[in-house]
């Protein structure tokens, strides 16, 4: 596992990942809503308007400025977030750059750090072959390093069976579900995953990892292509003869994925593994803020 970027961690202190409610998801991207009310958590100052409760007047401000301001409070709720990292065999493929698993692990660590820092309860797990393996993470800076080491020790193998992940979500009902995967699953399985977003109080987000060479298919020599998860998927061919067909198939798959996530109001992000980690994390967080 590469050393964590301290500058990035410093930057991430100021970042937040907001959890969307079902109602917000319906208008995602339009505005933000805090629903201030009678909670204990201070939200903001506002000028006093007739009718406001006197008990919320800020006397100190009145004494200093001679102006009437009221304090507003909201509900304080610790969000439970669950980050699932795909540890199937296809995540272990490296076509010149880092493996998708290495990239996913680093990304998961930074996202977990952000969530923990904003006070949410964070669980990080890997999933493959129908099992979910939780990793230790308590939220402190030492825990970040521990999580990083634990992810580095994961050996990719097997397929990306999502059944256990779905079971886990149904049991735990986390408010935020982050799935980092190359999404090489059957269409019906993916459909079941996307329906998680319909659960009350669950915000599902997909981080789709792709290798640069998967996108460009810039192979030249006579090659024997194999799918590490499905050994029956193999093709011995000159890459130039199938490039167009391959790119068409990949583009079709990505298009269907975008449509499906859009239909199910699932936040979907596609990240190529040759993207610098700082850029990938910050950009994802920025896009997430605009989207929520």
């Amino acid at each position: 596992m590469p050393r964590l970027d301290p500058d990035l961690l410093t930057l991430l202190h100021r970042c937040r990942i907001e959890v969307r409610t079902n109602r917000e998801k319906a208008y995602a991207g339009l505005h933000r809503s805090h629903h201030p009310g009678d909670g204990l958590e201070f939200v903001e100052f506002r000028e006093y308007h007739p009718g406001d409760a006197i008990r919320f007047l800020d006397w100190r401000v009145l004494a200093r400025t001679d102006r009437l301001y009221v304090r507003r409070f909201g509900h304080e709720s610790a969000v439970m977030a669950h980050i699932y990292v795909d540890a199937s065999a296809s995540m272990g493929v490296a076509l010149g750059g880092p493996t998708k698993l290495a990239f996913a692990s680093e990304l998961a660590v930074y996202l977990a750090f952000v969530l923990a820092h904003q006070g949410d309860r964070v669980h990080v797990s890997t999933f493959r072959e129908g099992r979910v393996a939780p990793l230790p993470f308590t939220g402190g800076s030492d825990a970040v390093r521990g999580l990083s080491d634990a992810l580095a020790a994961v050996v990719p193998r097997g397929d990306s069976d999502l059944a256990a992940l779905l079971r886990d979500v149904e049991l735990e009902r986390p408010q935020l579900v982050l799935v980092i995967s190359d999404l090489l699953v059957e269409a019906d399985v993916l459909d079941r995953l996307l329906r998680v977003s319909r659960m009350e109080g669950v915000d599902l987000r997909l981080l789709h990892l792709l290798d640069r060479r998967e996108l460009d298919f810039d192979f030249d020599a006579y090659t024997r292509f194999e799918d590490p998860e499905e050994r029956s998927f193999k093709l011995e061919v000159h890459p130039r003869s199938i490039r167009d067909r391959y790119l068409d198939a990949l583009a079709g798959y990505l298009r269907r994925l975008e449509i499906a996530t859009s239909d199910q109001a699932v936040a979907y992000a596609r990240i190529v593994t040759d993207t610098p980690m700082r850029q990938a994390v910050l950009r994802y967080l920025q896009e997430g803020r605009r989207g929520t």
């Binding site: 296809s90 493929v93 190359d182 792709l210 090659t223 024997r224 194999e226 799918d227 998927f233 193999k234």
Partner: peptide, 22 residues
């Protein structure tokens, strides 16, 4: 064929699924 370069490419399944007889 003996000199074919072996490459693990998971996304090849998109091609082979879409064009089963390919």
């Amino acid at each position: 064929r003996r000199r074919a370069l072996p490459v693990e490419l998971p996304a090849i399944r998109h091609l082979l699924r879409e064009h089963a007889p390919f």
